Every structure is written in structure tokens, then in C-alpha cells.
Simulated assay, not measured.
Amino acid sequence: MTLSRSSAGSLVLLVLFLALWQWGPGLLGMPEFVLPNLTRVAQEAVAMWQTGNLLEHTLITTLEIIVGFALGALLGIVIGVALGLSPAAEAMLSPYILALQIAPKVAFAPLFVMWLGYTVYPKILIAILIVFFPVMINVLSAIRTVDPDMINLVRALSATRWQLFRLVEFPSAMSALFSGLRIASTLAVIGVTVGELVGGNKGLGFLLVDAEGQGNTAGVFVTIVALTVIGVLAYAAVVWAEKRVLHYLPKANLATA
């Protein structure tokens, strides 16, 4: 019942937002080049789809996001586990990892373009850099906070180091891992878009810059909506995987009286 009310509330808000987008600009007297209404944006989306530009660039951006997310998440898991199991390694490497995280990722994009040219690789590298940190820090924290009683119990049963990691430490980190993956799934979209904005000749980021250069505000909105849809689908895919993998965890009872 609560879920149905939440879904209905979300649907009402969506309809209200779309209605405001359709009639709000006209009521406020905004010209089309400032804020086109929903119908004009939909017409532009159809035109861009028919020419093939929207589909082609969307597929390229989606591929870059998937590859960057997968590689960044894998790197974050590996390094997070390694640092979690080795306090000495964490103390030695954490300042450099933190410095890499603090450095603005936009600043790396021109450098990667100079090294690798106008290809998909600079965008994927930016996505890897952005995805890596939230996954790594979540896994690291989870490995460090495993229940010591459970570790002692498994050790008392003469478990090997690999068995201890496989049966206790890594399963205990799965929930935190997926929390990091949720954040990373949206950041991957941002990373790829930044790369395409700075040095791209393909992808939705390039399409956005091209539309902006032509003064095509409706085209800019079409691109933004496409990127938003990709981000929502990426987040939903992580949530779906989380439910399949962590189905054994008890669910919190959020119902209120």
C-alpha cells in the first residue's frame, strides 16, 4: 500500500513537471531560444533520431559509460580489498590516492586527449578515475569493519587466509560495495560527459556542444534528457543486481504506524 502511494505520488509529480515544462515558458513569456517547451523538445528529439545522430551518439556514450564503470569498479574493488587487508599498504598509498581524488578530473581530460587523441579512450579514463574512488573507499571501510568475533570463529575452525576472505570478509563487504556502485553508476555518466565536452568528436557530450554552438536550445535539452535517461538506467541496473546478489540480507521494516 505504501509502495503504491509512493509510486502514485511520483507519477503525479512527473505529470506536474511535464505540464509546467509544456505551458510554463509560454505563461512566463520566455522565448524559445531561452527555454523551449516540451513539445518543441520532443519534435527536435524526433528529428535528431530520424537523422541517426541521436542514436549513434547515444550508443557511443553508453558504451563508454559501461566500459568506464566496469573497469573503474573492478579497480576500486581490487585496491579496496588490498588496502583493507594491509594497513601498511594503506598508510603508504592513501596520500597519493587522496591526491588523485582531490585533483579536478576536468583538468585531466585535455591531457588524455593530447595523449590518446579524439578517441573513446580519454572518456573511458575519466570515467575510471571518477568511479574508482567511491567503490574503493566503500570496500576498504567494509573490509576494515568486519565483525572480529566472526573472524575469530572461522580461524578457530582452522580456515585458511583465502577461506577467511572468501567466506567472511568479502561477503561482509558486499552491501557496502553496492552502495559504492550506486554512486559510481551516476558518476560514470558525468565522467564520460566531461570527457566528451572537453575533447570529443562523438557521443552525447559532443552533440551537446554542437547544439549549443548552433544556438539549438531544444537540441541541448534533448541531449541532457538522453544523458539523464542513461544515468537512471545505469542506477536501476545496479539496484537490480544488488537485489539479486544480496537477496539473503534481511530487509529493514520501513513501515510506520
Results as ranks from 00 to 15, higher is better:
T2Q: 08
T2E: 09
S10F: 11
L11K: 12
V12M: 09
V12G: 14
V15T: 12
M30W: 11
F33M: 10
P36D: 12
P36I: 07
L38F: 04
R40A: 11
V46T: 14
Q50L: 15
Q50W: 10
T61R: 03
I66Q: 14
F69I: 14
F69E: 05
A70R: 09
L71E: 00
L71D: 00
A73C: 15
L75M: 14
V78E: 14
V78D: 10
G80W: 01
G80S: 00
M92K: 12
L93I: 01
S94N: 11
A99I: 11
L100Q: 12
I102T: 13
A109Y: 03
P110D: 02
V113G: 07
V113S: 09
W115G: 03
W115M: 04
L116R: 08
L116K: 10
V120D: 03
V120Y: 06
Y121A: 09
K123P: 01
I124D: 02
L125I: 04
I130E: 05
F133M: 03
V135M: 04
N138G: 05
V139E: 02
I143S: 00
R144F: 02
R144H: 06
T145H: 10
T145F: 02
V146P: 06
P148I: 05
L157D: 13
S158I: 06
Q163H: 10
L164R: 05
V168A: 00
F170C: 03
S172A: 14
S175V: 15
L181H: 03
L187P: 15
A188S: 11
I190V: 15
G191N: 05
T193Y: 11
V194D: 08
V198Q: 13
G199C: 11
G200Q: 06
A211I: 01
Q214W: 14
G215M: 00
G215Q: 00
T217L: 02
A218T: 00
A218D: 01
I230K: 01
I230C: 03
I230E: 03
I230R: 02
L233N: 11
A236Y: 13
V238K: 02
V238R: 00
V239N: 09
W240G: 11
A241T: 14
A241W: 11
R244F: 15
L254I: 10
